[in-house]
């Protein structure tokens, strides 16, 4: 059967189902923000373990980070949800299970980011602060932490964006986020093209918004430190891509 390409595009049902898709976005936002917050705490704990003077703790931190970095979210979800639950004879709630998995895996990425940021501040800063007679507490709070924050913020933003995108994987265990809703209605109306295209567009919009917001946050922190304004090429602002080199890749 020969059909003209795009002849039958029908975005009407997508618009009709907007409140369902919107509630999917709500779930996605909730899950990503909560996971990110927990992952930050987890990342700090892991980074702290790594910095520990006790060798076993430091090693445990290292191994944990490496193992978590090697685990695919989907694999963890399947194992938790279908494997472990079946064995224990209990059932996870999809949303808490999803949040747990997202937070756990991303805490390892954040731990590496925190550690790199911690080490990126030149040691002369500490020597200078202590030489000025500042107590160690003041050095950490007023000198070290602001600089670490400034260094780590861009990479943290990348992790947050990755978390937002990865919430889509929670559809596999039935979390009613954006992709799950799109999938449901794509099947119901038999219009996968329209619904998946819409979902992709919504994701792009959200990722762009979040990236812009995050850039503002970064700027606020750099302004506070009176550093020279970061040079940004205007082309870097499209989708928030390209302005800064990004090599952190979480999945």
């Amino acid at each position: 059967m020969t059909t003209t390409v795009f002849a039958a595009l029908d975005f009407g049902p997508v618009w009709e189902m907007r409140s369902e898709l919107l509630s999917g976005i709500g779930t996605m936002a909730l899950v990503s923000v909560v996971s990110f917050a927990i992952a930050i705490v987890g990342g700090l704990v892991l980074a702290g373990m790594r910095q520990s003077r006790s060798l076993p703790i430091s090693w445990a931190g290292f191994v944990l980070i490496q193992v978590l970095r090697g685990i695919a979210l989907y694999v963890l979800l399947l194992w938790l949800f279908f494997g472990l639950a079946a064995q224990g004879g209990f059932q996870f709630e999809p949303i808490p299970a999803g949040i747990f998995a997202l937070a756990l895996l991303n805490s390892a990425y954040l731990a590496e980011i925190f550690r790199a940021g911690y080490e990126a501040v030149p040691p002369g800063q500490k020597e200078a602060a202590l030489a000025c007679g500042l107590p160690k507490r003041t050095w950490f709070g007023k000198i070290h932490l602001p600089q670490v924050t400034q260094i780590t913020l861009p990479a943290m933003g990348n992790v947050f964006v990755d978390i937002i995108k990865d919430t889509s994987i929670l559809s596999a265990i039935g979390v009613a986020e954006l992709l799950r809703e799109s999938q449901r209605w794509a099947q119901f109306y038999e219009l996968p093209f329209e619904f998946y295209t819409a979902a992709a567009a919504i994701y792009i919009a959200i990722v762009t918004l979040v990236t812009f917001g995050w850039r503002r946050l970064e700027r606020r922190f750099s302004r506070h430190l009176h550093t020279a304004p970061r040079v940004r090429r205007s082309r870097g602002l499209l989708f928030g891509i390209g302005g800064r080199p990004s090599t952190t890749t979480a999945s």
């Binding site: 995108k165 889509s168 992709l179 093209f193 998946y196 979902a199 994701y203 792009i204 989708f239 891509i241």
Partner: peptide
Amino acid sequence: TLWVGLARGVPLLIVIFWLYY
């Protein structure tokens, strides 16, 4: 830039569904 933005902004699972279905 558009391509890179799309490739990095759209979750993999959606790309999979899109290409397949």
